[in-house]
Design a protein around this nucleic acid. Structure first.
Length: 206
DNA sequence: ACACATGATGGCGGTAGAGA
DNA sequence: TCTCTACCGCCATCATGTGT
């Protein structure tokens, strides 16, 4: 079963190899042994007549051709996923699917937790994995590790389709002894005042 | 010590040929 | 035309070698 002489399974291996830049790591991710992935890389090298990944010290560096192939393999994987999804009618009542959702603890509290009881009624076999959002969340969404990201509009990936889920207003909480709390606050006044801020993730500096 | 490559070996599936 | 069987190739694992 070859397409233009290429075993299409090798495209999956190439996609993972270019992401991991490590034969061992790619093998672990694909539940194969390292020699199996090494052999797959060898067949890819033969087909493309290119090293694709060059060992430099203890690292594997992609060749220019591999860099060119990377977005194409990504697109192929996305198309394949869409192709597969088209063939299966999703029925929440019988589905055993596991969804991976990237979101904040806030959304977990106000949206997902109350939704679980309803989900238990309409989709008892469906499971949810909830992951905290972070700087790599868009990459994980592209990779297919995450099915859905729920978050504020400015943080959504421009490349992914999105839909407005709900809107809400910010509320100012302040000390009753603060004179600013006893008069109307417009946007300028708001920014003039000092704040206590919560920052999550590695980039916590102001 | 770690990561990748390679050789030996075995299982699985495809192909070709023989027979009903 | 269909079924069975022998053979072959591919790809996996295991064991081991090689390079950093």
């Amino acid at each position: 079963m070859r397409f233009k002489g290429l075993d299409l399974n090798l495209i999956i291996a190439l996609d993972v190899l270019l992401e991991e830049r490590s034969v061992s790591a790619a093998a672990a991710r694909m539940n194969l042994t390292q020699p199996a992935l090494s052999a797959a890389l060898s067949r890819l090298r033969r087909y493309f007549d290119d090293d694709l990944l060059l060992a430099v010290g203890r690292r594997m560096i992609p060749t220019p051709l591999a860099e060119e192939l990377r977005p194409l393999t990504k697109q192929l994987m996305r198309d394949a996923a869409a192709f597969i999804n088209m063939s299966s009618n999703f029925d929440p009542a019988t589905s055993k699917r596991r969804f991976a959702i990237g979101t904040s603890d806030y959304i977990l509290t106000v949206l997902i937790a109350p939704m679980l009881a309803h989900l238990e009624d309409i989709a008892p076999g469906v499971q949810l994995d909830v992951f905290p959002t972070g700087p790599e969340i868009h990459e994980r969404l592209d990779r297919g590790d995450i099915d859905l990201v729920i978050g504020p509009e400015p943080f959504l990936a421009p490349s992914a389709p999105s839909e407005l889920l709900f809107e809400e207003q910010h509320v100012v909480i302040g000390w009753d002894g603060n004179p600013a709390m006893h008069q109307p606050i417009d946007i300028d006044r708001f920014f003039e005042l000092g704040h206590v801020a919560v920052r999550i993730g590695m980039e916590r500096e102001l």
